[in-house]
Each structure stands twice: as C-alpha cells, then as structure tokens.
Design a protein around this nucleic acid. Structure first.
Lengths: 229, 229
DNA sequence: AAAACCCTTCGCCGCGCGCCGAACTGTTCC
DNA sequence: GGAACAGTTCGGCGCGCGGCGAAGGGTTTT
C-alpha cells in the first residue's frame, strides 16, 4: 500500500507546542532552543525533545555555534508547504480576532525569506495596480519597469523553471503577497537600505521613516496608518 | 501569538490509519466507511471515529446515500496541499522498495482528478519532448498543437489566473505529471473513450488495447512494458 | 578554578487517544 | 415482520507521548 510518510510530518505538526515553534521559525531567522521554548511556553528540556523530533522529520535543521544551538527551517520548500497547509487550515475567526485585539502581529514581518503582513499585501496590490506585476497561471509575471530597480529587484533575462515571483497567501490577511526570489530581493534590499529594521526583542519588522518615504515616492503608497507601530 | 491551526490539520494527518484513508481518497473517488476501514486495516467503528475527525478538520466531506455514507476529499485545494506535503515527506526508500516488490501501485492510477503513475509521468515527458508543453515559472504552459484535440484537451483562449496545466509531483516516481484543468480533461477523455478503465475491486487504472494504440499513434509513446498489468 | 549559562539525557507522572467488543439506529431486501 | 447489513455510540483497555524536575556534558565568563 502506498503511503507517503504523511504521518511523520503530521506527527511533527500535530502538536500545539511544535506548531508554535514552526510559526516562530517561519520568520526565517534562526532561533535558540531557549527562545523557542519561551515562544511555545514550555521548559527548555521539553523544547529540546520537540526540536529533535522536528529535525528527524526533516523540517528543521540545527547548527551549533558556541554553547548555543541555532534552529532554522530546513528550506524554502518547507516554508512553502507550511503556507499551503495554512491556506486550507480551518478559519479560526475567534482566534484571529483576539490576536488582533492583543496588538497582534506586526503590520510588517518576514515570512521565511520575504516580506509579509498588511504592508506587504499593500505593496503587492500596488505592484498589480501599477501593472508592474501580472497574475497569470497561478504565478506572478513581472513586467519590466524602472520601479523594480529602485526597489532593488533585478529581473531575470529569461523565465526560468522556478517561479521568480511566487504568490504567497498571507496567514492573517488571506491575501496574496510576493514570495520567491523576487520577494527575497525585496526583503534584502529594504533591510540593506534601512527602509525596514528588525525589532530587537519582538517579532516583526519596523518600517522606518526613509522607508515610508521611499514607498510613497516609488509606489505612491501612503502607509501612514500602517506604519504606526 | 499568531498560530494558524496547523495543529488541527496536523492532528488529522498525524495518524497512520488516517493517512492511509487519505491516500485512498486521493484517488478522487468516494468511498464508504467500510472500504476505508479495510484500507486502513481497522474496524468500521474505529474508521468512523477517524472520518469524523477528518470531517471536523475540513479535509473530508460525507454524503449519505441510502444506508451508505460516501466520503470524499473536501476539494482540490486539499488534494493539492497533501501533494505539497508529500513533496517534502522524508524519502522512505525501504518502504517504497517493499511496495514495488509487493506489486505495488498500478502503473496508472488517478490522483484526485487526473492521471498519475509511471505512465502519466511518461505521457508528460512526451508532451515536453514534443514541445506541446513548456515548463516555466513553476507552471506548465500548453503550446497549441493538433495532438491536444486528439487527447480531448481544449486549450483556453487566454491564460487565466489559475494554472491550466499544473505540475503535480508523483508520490512514487518523484517526477512531474500534469494536473489542473488539463489533467482533468485528459482523465475524463481517456475514461470516456475507453482508453483506460477503472478496475473493479483493486486500486488503479488499466490501460486498454485501444488506449495503448492511441497513445502510440498520437504521442509515439511505446508503453508495451508499462501496460503489462 | 569557579561560577554562570545553554543544552541534553534520564526517569517519572498523567492525560489523551487509538483500538476493539458490544449494543443501538436506520436502511434494504426477502 | 424479520433478517441482513451499514454506520454510529458507548465503555473500557493499554500504549504513547507531552510535560517537568533532577542531573550530566560543554562552553563562556570572571
């Protein structure tokens, strides 16, 4: 009987503590055991067991540096598959509502290797509205435009086998934003140019004043309300 | 803290019996409780509990007809998400080997709503080799050709938002074959024209003599060895 | 060297859940 | 009506696993 080892993966993500950790890791950064333990609300030794399991399932990789062990998602495919799962996850409106009420997730955050959150959705909306991006065949096709250069995006000469700009469904918004190589380039550029900064001890990203100005100048995107963080 | 309800889905697919059932349902057909119980190797009352859980998770829908209850996957998104999961599932070579040894899965079978298995992979290979299909941007683009009509495929006039021919990673082969609307059209046509037939009490599909002849004539596909079933 | 810190391993507890046998409801067929 | 069958509910058993406290390597700091 054919049975892809769903059960191993399912086992890995069937526990609330582990899902919490995975969500944390979806930020794309590497986290220590202790950090993930705190995120899941369990003791370090329990987190250690969970992480070993996630590692065995191939979802997470660990790297030892000094006395700390840094855990990271095993790859973009893992992040992508988890996104797919989130897309069919039952809508938990109550859960989502209370999360908003509690200040919730930042307006801007990283989703593995690209920008996510309401602001990322708004940016993608702007790309589509301005004709810089076209959605077809379930993928995004980038249209050459001067704006891309200003955003630090270098378009490939020819379309490759892998999608350059992949649509990614936002968890909280249930709307599309840009993932894939293009998403990575945008994140890299906005970080490098100081448009967005990583927050110290909180999740999410922060849009700086220059960043706000740049988005308004390049995309005519008014994000005054969004940047109130 | 943001946490898409991975845990509900994970819970649903974390059990071997349930994964077995889901794999059965990936055929695309509807199955009764008893059939799924047999497939998973458990008693009907146990299967009943599992199916209720899968239903609550939104993965499966049930339809009562007479004294039987027919269970089906909740939709194409579910099938797609499961495929994605299978793509990152740890390779279980031992498992796969023993499955081949045991006669394994048919050379041809249905994967939710399209053809799958080695023969489907070979067909896709032929499409690509003959230039009828081009892989780009992570999607398949169909090139107008007379062969398509002979296969019962009607190409859309303009590219839509959803991919017409979506690549689907085969569980057993780990190679691509055609899913999406095109895949559905191909499956429908091959069934309607009697090229392939559903087996009575066994899983998988059977390639008929006319079907073999048609594939050889249209695609120059020699599938003598493949059809030995 | 000692202290502080991060992580892991071990042992134990308790809940949860998968499983089945038995009994019950509802439908179909004779 | 009665028999046969599909499915579900209930009760009880037993394993598995998530959780923590305690103890044991390893690394960094003082």
């Amino acid at each position: 009987m054919i049975t892809p080892r769903f059960d191993i993966l399912g086992q890995a993500i069937s526990d609330a503590s582990r899902t919490q950790m995975l969500c944390e890791l979806m930020e794309g950064r590497a986290y220590t055991n202790k950090e993930l333990a705190a995120a899941a609300g369990v003791t370090p030794q329990t987190a250690s067991a969970h992480l070993r399991l996630l590692q065995d399932a191939g979802l997470v990789v660990a790297e030892k540096r000094g006395r700390c062990v840094y855990h990271r998602l095993a790859g973009a495919e893992v992040a992508h598959a988890l996104e797919q799962l989130a897309a069919i996850a039952p809508a938990d409106s109550l859960h989502r509502a209370q999360q908003r009420k509690a200040g919730g997730l930042a307006q801007l955050r990283s989703c593995y290797d690209h920008l996510a959150g309401p602001l990322a959705v708004a940016m993608t909306r702007a790309f589509l509205d301005r004709g810089m991006l076209v959605e077809e065949q379930g993928a995004f096709r980038a249209v050459p435009a001067g704006e891309w250069l200003k955003l630090g995006v270098v378009l490939p000469e020819k379309t490759g086998r892998q999608p350059f700009a992949r649509p990614c469904l936002d968890w909280t918004e249930r709307k599309l934003h840009v993932a894939g190589p293009m998403g990575r380039q945008i994140l890299d550029h906005t970080l490098a140019s100081g448009w967005v900064k990583r927050r110290k001890h909180k999740r999410g990203l922060l849009l700086s004043a220059p960043g706000r100005a740049a988005l308004e100048q390049i995309l005519d995107l008014r994000c005054g309300a969004l940047a109130a963080a």
